[in-house]
Design a protein around this nucleic acid. Sequence first.
DNA 1: CGAGCCCTTGAAACTCGTCAATGATCGTGG
DNA 2: CCACGATCATTGACGAGTTTCAAGGGCTCG
Lengths: 248, 248
Amino acid sequence: MSSAAHRWIRRLARFATFTLEEHRALEDASASTRRCAANDDLHKPGDSGGRLFVVLEGLVCQHKFLADGRRQILAYLFAGDMADPRQLLQTHMDHALCVIWPSEVAMLTSSSMQRLDQFPNITQAMSRYASTQQAIGREWLVNVGHRTASERLGHLICELYIRLEAVGLTRDQAFELPLTQAELGDTLALSAVHVNRTLMELRRLKLVTFQNRQVVIHDFAALRIAAGFDPRYLQLNEETLGRIAGMP
Amino acid sequence: MSSAAHRWIRRLARFATFTLEEHRALEDASASTRRCAANDDLHKPGDSGGRLFVVLEGLVCQHKFLADGRRQILAYLFAGDMADPRQLLQTHMDHALCVIWPSEVAMLTSSSMQRLDQFPNITQAMSRYASTQQAIGREWLVNVGHRTASERLGHLICELYIRLEAVGLTRDQAFELPLTQAELGDTLALSAVHVNRTLMELRRLKLVTFQNRQVVIHDFAALRIAAGFDPRYLQLNEETLGRIAGMP
DNA sequence: CGAGCCCTTGAAACTCGTCAATGATCGTGG
DNA sequence: CCACGATCATTGACGAGTTTCAAGGGCTCG
């Protein structure tokens, strides 16, 4: 499996076992891809729906701006992630999809989705996947609402580590995270300055280091405790849980 | 339409025009109901999935607790609201469903859902409905993350007013909201004390009053501005927008 | 080599949380 | 019918966490 779609398929394959034919259908659907530069908007609020983006490489985010420029990042889409299939039904988008790091994306339309929906296995995998993404959104609300700055940051890092591990985007206890501190702030509802101070604290505690777009986790077990991270919302299977060191 | 299901059907009917047969199928599916007292848990985190609750009367919320007792309310389910159909696929719940005010609820199972799914019209209406609920969740993240206390409170009140208006649960510019200030705090990520102070400020500004479980909006247009409320995320149709006074 | 973006650091201000005490309201049982 | 306890609303004083403002330094890219 060397096509650009392999991380996407791998992510979905967590929720179903695909036949060769289904596998092929997914590859076909995402065959036509497009390269996007940072800051490109894949869609903006108010745009019509009917399009569904799959991120094959790079990093994309969902976000929303307030009138005065305050911004909340709603979700990250890493390589292998896709937007929610239900967006095909929405008549106009309520949020924007913005490229954070040069990306390769595929765009599914209603008709290509209809083809995929002929395989109940695929439909179900997508629904389960989207359901997990929704659970992540709920956890983000808890994070932003009720955790302290260092808990927020630690919790996000734990989550991203596990999500990226699932598609082979980590090595040892490290992964690439091409975000500025300001973007982390817009994610966690903290000022960039405070993100900076909090990162230094986590580094001082020898829990995790974030420098040059690299996150290095020095002590996952301790970070997990410090952040109050409970991975159950990620709907992992036993096998994955076991693979991650420092997991309950 | 006098069955207990009428608000539910009315809410879904926003997204599709039901035939008599479809109408009947929805009534049948929700025929068996159950009365629940405040503080009952319909399900807890870790419970197995496969059940889908519809709230016919009362008020229910989704929430999540942190280990030390901090709590974030994730969503309200008013009369006519239902949980996300995708929860039927989840093997175990990541959040709790808790009754806030004495309620009447129906429980759909996978098999009753399969019956309903024979009507593509119903499936589609539910998906569109759930999609709107997801958009509300996104807006809550923006709310908690990036708005000030009075903006948060004002924004929530604007949203609830419109949601309740859609199922006939408002009269004039007022509606019943059986929440304590502590529960509002757990929703908006504010302390109960600060909710109290903020409510008084909104009252002092003659924007809105919340007393004895009654929300009275004195000046919707001004409240909307003060809260930065843009109703587009609620996916309203023109007709509804026009009905609400003070709408753009 | 300069411009621009990003990270870092300090000081001051502010929003909001915590603690604590007082009242108001309400359902319950004596 | 009133006393009681419980829950909730209200208010004040204080403190903590976080934001804002400001400035300097480092890195990268043209």
